[in-house]
Design a protein around this nucleic acid. Structure first.
Lengths: 138, 138
DNA sequence: CGGAATCCCATTCGATACTG
DNA sequence: CAGTATCGAATGGGATTCCG
């Protein structure tokens, strides 16, 4: 017996892996800040509160769908607050919470790392491309 | 005239946005470390060099395809080194470079932030779900 | 103005099978 | 052991349209 070993073993491994991820706050939050738009929104709001259309203009390339989706998930996580002012044309402001500010600081650290080591990465990348792309080319 | 305003304007905005991203090292590297598997591989290698199959076992849930793909891109960026020992069964070791170690440190900082603020996020999330999910539910 | 809902395409990812 | 190749499923994300 045990014809199903290989497949089932990975399936079970995957199960345990999922359980691990669920129990690991790091991965949950890493996934959150990993999002392409999240970092841009947080960076845009770091300077101060903005309205929906201001964000759309500042980020410049985001579709309304993704902007709304991103803002909702960030609001849900307590990264920012959404304030509706029921004037005639509705006005909605978004602002970072203290938690959001601390996230902005973290992203600043990431940015610092990226700027510090970008040269190394760039160099390594070019060398790798040269070595693998033209090792035996005429 | 100007029937195409809305769509075309965003298209052009998108173009500029792409140009911005290309010139911004932060986003390039943020995208790299954002990857779900990258962080796991770096974390796994932080303790010391590992062989391919060791990594597959330690990460437990990754397909060979993604593992190889992740390792290649990290090698390309100078995050880790790949050492082939041409013994009878081929042996390949992966090890973090100094650059990779610094990235591991950064991920540690992210992890610290996540663990520090996980409660807040969790609380905010539950509150949000409660408020939006059952305000008028029977 | 600020958003919700729908459609749909492109990329990505995972599982499997095969090779050196 | 350490990959590569291929296929199908899932997902993300953009455009569009309509509501309050």
């Amino acid at each position: 017996m045990a014809t199903t070993t290989a497949a089932q073993r990975r399936e079970q491994a995957r199960f345990e892996y999922d359980a691990f991820l669920r129990s690991c706050p790091t991965n949950q939050l890493l996934d959150r800040i990993s999002d392409k738009w999240v970092s841009l929104v947080v960076a845009a709001l770091a300077a101060g509160p903005l309205r929906y259309s201001d964000l759309a203009r500042k980020i410049a390339g985001v579709s309304p769908k993704m902007l709304t989706q991103t803002l909702r998930s960030l609001e849900r996580d307590g990264i920012l607050t959404r304030t509706v002012t029921p004037s005639v044309p509705v006005r909605v402001d978004y602002e970072l919470t203290p938690l959001g500010s601390s996230l902005a600081h973290l992203l600043t650290a990431v940015k610092a790392w990226a700027e510090t080591h970008f040269d190394e990465v760039h160099t390594a990348r070019e060398r790798y491309d040269t070595e693998t792309d033209a090792p035996s080319a005429p």
